[in-house]
Amino acid sequence: MTVTFDDILAARERITGQVDRTPVRHSRKLSQLTGAEVWVKYDNLHFTGSFKERGALNRLLQLTPDERKRGVVAASAGNHAQALAYHGGRLGIPVTIVMPEGTPFVKADGTRAHGATVVIKGVDFSGSTEEAHRLRDEEGFVFVSAFDDAGIVAGQGVCGLEFLEDAPELDLLIVPIGGGGLIAGTAIAARGLKPSIRIFGVEAAMYPSFSARRRGETPRCGGQTIAEGIAIKAVGDIPFALADPLVEDVLVCGEADFEKAVAFYATLEKTVAEGAGAGGLAAMLAYPDRFRGMKVGLVLCGGNIDSRMLAVVLNRELVREKRLVVYRILGDDRPGMLSKMSAVIGGLGGNIIDVVHNRLALDVPAKGAEFDIMVETRGEAHADEIRHGLEEAGYALRMG
């Protein structure tokens, strides 16, 4: 099964007026950060928060009247689910979604809010897919893959059309890869408009299914990743066949890269990205020499991150930058001890956020106490200044 440039043009005609055309903007701050010229396509601004709307709507509009009446079923970690639920509800098509255990609440709740029936089944996407196939066979639903479907791929390709029309000067695109639908459609569309455009993919290190298949290897996938939207154990057959000849390289990124990218989107671009959505920026942070000086397009493909997880990521980035530091101090357990330590920290401009006393650790003297003092600093140099100030005041700092 193939998808052509004309198929993507037809998909755009089919969905026009029903899906937002998301903005493309040059980012001066991300350009300064990476040393490249960076343009971002903000697909997190779709109504359901991700790029999935184009493919879902295109596929639903291709159903026969009988298939619309029977309804559809899909397996999804959340973004395909919400897109299918929203547009299915608009079109009067019943939608059932099977989600893996551990799917972020924001995605499950968002899917229900659009009127879909949500079934939580399977420890991962593969298990959810098995349950969706069972429901298809028993209930007569039409199974709509999140990525392994020509109609889905054609719809996702509209992203590439929009990107190159709005930023024709780009040298390359970096696109996150889960099942492969987005990169396949985007690559076909982008190459159709600009044959010289270079296409790079990015995968989570825990789920390198596309790159492993390229090497002829069985992918070793598993684990809890912040990029759960691309945590797919097996790339789709259709998207892989379409994308493999068009993708120059697939860059594999670790968890810290995704976390940093989410944090930089929030602090520099003032926009919310989920882990998978920040994949393109994660690749630029992990492989800076590959893109320095080039005109790079990033598909910010989703913003459906759980608010608690976003808070965790932002705080972890403060720790990496040493703007949040815990000083572990061994001292005497007597009145005024904490006050004296606080005076040193405050005198050097540190802001104490939290204090924890530990009197029960067996490597602490019975008449002593261990103090974990969390301090907000201005950065690494300021954190070191406070550390040296505490040591000069006679306090013994332990590794923390």
Rank of each mutant, 00 (worst) to 15 (best):
T2I: 14
T4R: 03
I8Y: 04
A10E: 08
V24T: 13
L33T: 02
G35K: 01
H46Q: 15
G49W: 06
F51Q: 12
E53M: 08
G55F: 07
L57G: 12
L63H: 11
G71V: 07
G71A: 09
V73S: 00
A75M: 04
N79F: 09
H80K: 12
H80Q: 10
A85C: 10
G88C: 00
T117N: 15
K121E: 15
V123D: 11
E130H: 09
R134H: 09
V142G: 03
A146D: 04
F147V: 04
A150K: 15
P168C: 03
I177H: 09
G180K: 05
I183R: 02
I183G: 02
A187T: 13
R191E: 11
R191K: 15
R191Q: 14
G192E: 05
S196I: 02
R198I: 15
Y207L: 11
S209Q: 08
R213I: 06
E217M: 14
G223V: 15
T225M: 07
T225I: 02
P239N: 06
A241Q: 11
A243V: 01
P245C: 04
E248T: 10
A256T: 13
F258L: 11
A261I: 14
A266C: 10
A278T: 07
Y287C: 10
F291D: 00
C301F: 04
G302Q: 08
G302S: 08
G302D: 00
G303Q: 13
M309V: 09
N315I: 08
E321A: 11
V326N: 06
P335W: 03
G347V: 06
G349N: 03
I352M: 04
N358Q: 06
F371C: 09
G379N: 09
E380Y: 11
A381L: 14
D384S: 10
H388Y: 03
A393L: 09
A393Y: 05
Y395S: 11
L397H: 11
